[in-house]
């Protein structure tokens, strides 16, 4: 049920139309940052206002929303945003990736592959990938217009020079559709390959910076690299302590003050689904039968 006194999904209809136009333009020009009139939201910039405005503009009464923060459905930010839309749009919410029509995310792409018809909405803190090279907006726009992206490799060069490999591990720059250089928001580079030719629509909203960009379904997304230092994703020596997964993104958790630690899936939905299906990890096996 939509709570009284709010317009559907909080934003007024004019604002939603304005944002939809920005989204349409962003979809038409994959990777291009479209400016939009970002509104004041009932939470501070930096808490996902860009993603919320994008979600508010595309969500309908029949949609099912999932919100994750660092892969988890049960963190404060994720719970708050989910509740926000439950109250202002009265939509169904879910923790199941495949059940959602819209997934709003901060810092992760779900492990469960997204399918056609699903929309992934990213919360973006800093949209401009060239910002560290060039502080002037006029100049970065020109660099995008002229595809002057070579100097972007300077950062990767520095990584290799200092660490022997490309040490950049999140917000790893990509080239979209062979054209625009794009910042994928601070997702781990582990997730970069999931963006490539995804059947889902991917929308990016930066509230403070007032930019929206998009990757339409089935669009090529390439991570920058060198010929002799090709792009690679993170690998772990461990598996998930709970579900035993060896191919998902793992968070390291310190368990005591004596150096004890374990690795668990960052995607809570993925992990619990695996456990429901009977998979167990080392921590569960150690705890013995009868537990969980």
């Amino acid at each position: 049920m939509v709570e009284d006194g709010y317009n559907f999904a909080y934003l007024d209809e004019q604002t939603k139309r304005m944002i939809r136009r920005a989204i349409l333009k962003a979809v038409a020009i994959p990777g291009y940052q479209v400016p939009f009139g970002s509104r004041e939201m009932p939470l501070p910039f930096g808490w996902g206002t860009g993603g919320i405005q994008v979600t508010a503009s595309i969500i309908g009464p029949d949609d099912t929303l999932k919100v994750i923060d660092q892969g988890a459905d049960d963190t404060v930010n994720a719970v708050s945003i989910r509740k926000f839309f439950a109250r202002t749009a009265g939509v169904e919410t879910t923790e199941r990736t495949e059940a959602a029509t819209i997934v709003q995310t901060r810092h992760r792409i779900p492990e469960t592959p997204l399918g056609a018809g699903q929309i992934l909405v990213y919360q973006v803190p800093i949209p401009e990938p060239l910002r560290w090279l060039e502080p002037r907006e006029t100049e970065t726009r020109k660099m995008h217009a002229l595809q002057e992206y070579g100097p972007m490799h300077v950062r990767l060069y520095e990584d290799i020079a200092h660490f022997g490999h490309i040490a950049t591990s999140y917000d790893y720059p990509v080239r979209v559709n062979g054209r625009y250089l794009m910042r994928p928001s601070p997702i781990p580079k582990f997730d970069n390959p999931k963006m490539d030719r995804s059947p889902a629509l991917q929308l990016f909203g930066a509230g403070r910076e007032k930019r929206i960009y998009a990757i339409p379904p089935h669009t090529e997304v390439r991570s920058l690299d060198f010929d002799d230092h090709p792009f690679e994703v993170q690998k772990w020596a461990d598996v998930c302590a709970f579900c035993g997964s060896g191919d998902s993104f793992l968070d390291e958790i310190v368990t005591d003050d004596r150096g004890g630690r374990m690795f668990v899936c960052s995607d809570t939905d993925y992990c619990s689904r695996r456990r429901e299906a009977g998979c167990t990890g080392p921590a569960m096996q150690a705890a013995g039968p009868g537990e969980a």
Binding site: E148, G150, P151, H153, V154, R155, Y157, E158, I160, A161, H162, D225, F226, D227, D228, H229
Partner: peptide, 24 residues
């Protein structure tokens, strides 16, 4: 903000050099 090597390599990368070893 970047090393001497990166300073020299930048113009090469700007014109398309993508082989770390060669740039170095």
């Amino acid at each position: 903000g970047v090393s001497a090597g990166a300073n020299i390599g930048e113009r090469l990368m700007a014109v398309g050099a993508r082989h770390y070893g060669n740039i170095r």
